[in-house]
Nucleic acid binder design. Structure first.
Length: 468
RNA sequence: GUGGCUAUGGUGUAGUGGUAACACAGAGGCCUGUGGAGCCUUUAUCUCGGGUUCGAACCCCGAUAGCCACCCCA
């Protein structure tokens, strides 16, 4: 019976993050974390499951994300709940619910978490996907946009991905409404050239037509009014300030009047990062903008805010595409090899001892042969192997083998720790960093020779950081 | 959600109607006393279900999944 069943299978659009990919994930996580700390962001993790209404009220129930792609169901207590499709809503809910308005403003929060959208899967697009995000509450100044953009950019450059910053301002709700009408009016005369689907979009959400990839639409839009011309004075001034900061910091950007973004809560500045070699913005690597009315629309006290989120899988996809190797996982410093059961017991103990001293130790206690164990030690990239066999048990000694050159030295067992540390210190001083890691061996071997110099994460010295 | 292409060990591939081959990786061995090399053994009901045929990895239909282009977005 059981053998007639198929083995269990990944749900469509879901993906296991396998050991071989972990170096990429750690790298991006650490880079995001490092930047978050530099820029004064504290980590927050909100639940994956939230009330469905949170998203209909924030992202907007007319948006595709909510109306077509959200996982929503009724739970056992009859509540209408959703798997979160994005991060800002939950963080904003937490900001309000925990009274963070009483903290020194701006409040800066970051996360690195999974999200869910029931979309048709493709490369770089999954139904469960990960985003890191940075949210800033309680500041209306344009410099915050500049800083957020700087930070996001630093993340891409420090993993070696070149991006173009696409930026636009969509004004406030009134201007957007007015502009939508203007755009509708403009396209009305050309309605016959639209597909049925596009006609519906024109009715429902005309701004969405702007970033359509249909060349016909783009042609029709050549003379269309631009949202940037219908901005109110304050928004216009604000946008100019943002661009001014970017100019001053030599951040290149593309003023993209067709960038609108698909979440209702955005106002004023919106931006996206596209891979530099992807002119059409086929797969956006991240995006964000201002959402000054979101806190209020979730019944919080009016609080200007802004945020950015980047897609982890998409960055990794790009890294692989560009054959940028992940930052290697540190190899073990020492490997413990044993021959015979008494030696094995002794090594088991030594392992705990060294490990608790902060030494990176590895072993293969399940293997009996010295040859097999050295093979493993070699594969792991261990710098030294300590060997204890029958002879060493008798003499109460241990062999220290340097894996680089095969030179071995016999030392009394009670001196092993100090002897080992002496050698490790020396290596650390010489800047010898092991580059191989257990799980990514074969791939890393390929890259061993062309690991790029790690770029420093830039810290903007000329800007006051808000660190609590 | 719509359209197109694809599906062979863990991975990458060969086989195009006669009963699955190669490389790499894994496990074990040659070899309880020394790694990067070598040799040997071993690892597949050809994604699943149905059909055509004496015979199907191969042809047909369906399902499923992946990829690509839309839609949309991270």
């Amino acid at each position: 019976m059981a053998r007639e069943l198929q083995p269990p299978q990944l749900l469509r659009g879901m993906k296991d993050i396998l050991p071989s990919d972990q170096p990429y994930w750690w790298w991006i996580f650490d880079t995001a974390r490092n930047l978050a700390e530099c820029y004064g962001f504290d980590r927050i993790e909100t639940p994956i499951l939230e009330a469905a209404s949170l998203f209909t009220r924030s992202v907007g129930d007319a948006t595709d994300i909510v109306s077509k792609e959200m996982y929503t169901f009724t739970d056992k207590s009859g509540d209408n709940v959703s798997l979160r499709p994005e991060g800002t809503a939950g963080v904003t809910r937490a900001y309000i619910e925990h009274g963070m308005l009483n903290l020194p403003q701006p409040v800066k929060l970051w996360y690195f978490s999974p999200f869910f959208r029931h979309d048709r899967p493709q490369a770089g697009r999954y139904r469960q996907f990960w985003q890191f995000g940075f949210e800033v509450f309680g500041g209306q100044q344009a410099i915050l946009e500049a800083q957020l953009i700087l930070m996001a950019r630093a993340l891409y450059t420090s993993v070696g991905i070149e991006t173009t910053l696409q930026i636009n301002s969509i004004g406030d709700k009134t201007t957007r409404l007015q502009y939508a009408k203007a755009l509708q009016a403009f396209l009305k005369s050309k309605k016959s050239e639209l597909t049925d689907e596009q006609k519906i979009t024109l009715q429902k959400n005309p701004l969405r037509l702007l970033d359509s990839k249909d060349p016909k639409i783009q042609e029709l839009l050549v003379d269309a009014p631009q949202i940037i011309d219908s901005l109110d004075e304050v928004s216009q001034k604000h946008f100019q300030e943002v661009l001014g900061y970017l100019d001053e910091l030599d951040v290149p950007f593309v003023l993209n009047p067709k960038l609108v973004r698909g979440l209702d809560y955005y106002n004023r500045t919106v931006f996206e990062f596209w891979a530099a070699d992807d002119e059409g913005g086929q797969i956006s690597l991240g995006g964000g903008g201002r959402y000054d009315t979101l806190v209020e629309s979730l019944s919080g006290r009016p609080t200007p805010a802004l945020g950015f989120a980047g897609g982890v899988e998409r960055i990794i996809l790009k890294l692989k595409e560009k054959q940028i190797p992940p930052r290697p996982i540190a190899a073990p410093e020492v490997f413990l090899a044993q021959l015979g059961d008494p030696a094995r017991r002794k090594m088991l103990k030594l392992f705990e001892q060294l490990r608790s001293q902060g030494v990176r130790v590895a072993e293969a206690m399940t293997k009996d042969g010295i040859k097999q164990q050295l093979e493993v030690a070699n594969k792991l990239g261990a710098h030294y192997t300590l060997i204890v066999g029958q002879k060493e048990m008798m003499d109460d000694t241990v062999l220290i083998r340097d894996m680089e050159n095969g030179i071995q030295e016999e030392v009394p067992f009670n001196k092993v720790e100090s002897e080992l540390k002496k050698r490790l210190e020396k290596n650390r001083a010489n800047g010898v960093t092991p580059v191989t890691g257990q799980v990514t061996l074969e791939r890393l071997d390929k890259y061993k020779d062309d690991v790029p110099a790690e770029e420093e994460v830039p810290v903007p010295h000329d800007i006051d950081l808000d660190v609590e």
